[in-house]
Amino acid sequence: MYYLRLARGYRALDLARWLLTATAAAVVAAFLLRALGRALNGTGGNLERLLWCLPPLAAVAWFAAAAARAVPAQHPERITGLTAAGAGPARIRLLVAGEIALACALGSAFTLLLFLILRNDIAGPSLAPDLGMGVPLPPAAPVALLAVLPLVAGVSAACAIRFPESLPGRPAEPVRTRYAPLRLLLPVPVLLAGLGLELYGLRPDATDAERTLALPGGLPATSPALLIGWALTAVALGLWTGPLLALAGRLLALRRPEPLRLLAGRGLTARARGLGTPLAVLTALLALLLVAWRNWARTDTEVPVLTLVEGALVLACAVAALAARLHELRADRRPALDALDRLGTPTGLLAGTAALRALAAGGVLLLTGGLTVLLCPLL
């Protein structure tokens, strides 16, 4: 209880993060309970519906990991108090992971309560198949199904917190701005393999009979080679996002830069490692949504509501994870910003460097995202 008292004192940002986690967990729990209700009715396709729940589950786990990683940087005084009270890295990690798992559990419990209320002859005929009305509900089935969500989110949060550099009083590791040669060369074979599979799927003698993979959401059927090839190319371009951000920062600071270009270039180079992964994930999701939207508009297909809800949830989790990472990086650079403020740096100069960094990062994302869209075989 002493550790919980030290962990109190939520701010508006903490409450927003907690509510976002609980809301996202409630939506994913609704998808899982719908799959359970359909399975109780024996409508078939149970495995496919459960697999369709994996993207939002992974999105919630990704957001939980990003939010947990940002906690030590956002609240150094809280971590200091826990450390002074005798809590080690493992106990602090368990405390943060338990907080996120509790939010997911409460969101899941709210959805389960609503599910049970609607099953009590309240829902209309349109919702009856999704709720499994008329079929006895095994008590252990929804509990076991919904226990996966807080477990996955808690484990992701516990694994995301980095030690020892996140704890006050420990020596901070120097910021690495260079990438190892293996990190730079790894995407090359992945990209070549993806392009090879796409060319194989688009060969002139390929027939429509090979398009045996039915995509959800009204998207056209495709072949496994095309889908796997595009996934590999997207992964390769995502792996290059961080190095390209660092390269853009170095290009900004070339020659004899004025203070605006120097601060923007050095700042972008220092943040490239932290921003590379969340920006790559967000760019890939936006590219996928753009491709899907163009296909829906081209074929005049009515988009299922559940597909829109799931896409909005995954995109919201990606944006929230990026916001958490940006807040974490800003907290890490707070001493440097305070030093610049004590030196009398004009506010307009700092705003200009932020705008220039955003412009350079936007150019990199436009390059990687545009290539991801152009290489998609569904266009």
Rank of each mutant, 00 (worst) to 15 (best):
Tyr2Ala: 09
Arg8Gly: 15
Tyr10Asn: 13
Tyr10Asp: 15
Ala12Trp: 06
Asp14Thr: 02
Leu15Thr: 09
Ala26Tyr: 05
Ala30Pro: 00
Gly37Phe: 00
Leu47Ala: 13
Leu50Ala: 08
Leu54Phe: 10
Ala59Ile: 04
Ala59Ser: 07
Phe63Ala: 08
Ala66Gly: 08
Ala67Ile: 02
Ala70Thr: 06
Pro72Arg: 02
Pro72Lys: 02
Glu77Asp: 15
Leu82Ala: 04
Leu82Ile: 03
Leu82Cys: 08
Gly88Thr: 14
Gly88Phe: 14
Pro89Phe: 04
Ala90Asp: 12
Leu94Asn: 09
Val96Trp: 08
Gly98Lys: 00
Ala105Trp: 01
Leu106Lys: 03
Ala109Glu: 08
Phe110Gln: 00
Thr111Ile: 05
Leu112His: 10
Leu116Met: 14
Gly124Ser: 09
Asp130Ala: 15
Met133Lys: 08
Met133Tyr: 01
Pro136Met: 09
Pro138Trp: 05
Ala141Asn: 02
Pro142His: 04
Leu146Glu: 09
Val148Asp: 01
Leu149Pro: 02
Ala153Asp: 10
Ala157Lys: 03
Ala158Pro: 02
Phe163Arg: 13
Pro164Phe: 08
Glu165Gln: 12
Pro168Met: 12
Ala172Gln: 15
Glu173Leu: 15
Thr177Gln: 15
Pro181Asn: 07
Leu185Gln: 03
Val190Trp: 06
Leu191Lys: 02
Leu192Phe: 09
Glu198Val: 13
Glu198Cys: 10
Tyr200Phe: 13
Ala206Leu: 02
Ala206Asn: 10
Thr207Ile: 02
Asp208His: 07
Ala214Tyr: 05
Leu215Cys: 03
Pro216Val: 09
Gly218Gln: 08
Leu226Glu: 07
Ala231Trp: 01
Ala234Met: 04
Leu237Met: 11
Pro243Ser: 10
Leu244Tyr: 03
Leu245Trp: 02
Leu251Arg: 15
Ala253Cys: 04
Arg255Val: 01
Arg256Pro: 00
Leu263Cys: 01
Leu263Gly: 12
Gly267Thr: 10
Leu268Lys: 05
Pro278Asp: 07
Val281Gly: 01
Leu285Pro: 00
Leu285His: 03
Leu286Pro: 00
Val291Arg: 13
Trp296Phe: 10
Thr301Ile: 12
Pro304Tyr: 04
Val314Ser: 01
Cys317Thr: 12
Leu326Gln: 14
Leu329Ile: 07
Ala331His: 04
Arg333Gly: 04
Arg334Ser: 06
Ala336Thr: 13
Leu337Lys: 04
Ala339Glu: 14
Ala339Gly: 04
Arg342Pro: 00
Thr347Ala: 13
Thr347Trp: 08
Gly348Val: 11
Arg357Gln: 15
Ala358His: 12
Ala358Cys: 09
Leu359Lys: 08
Gly363Lys: 08
Gly369His: 06
Cys376Ile: 02
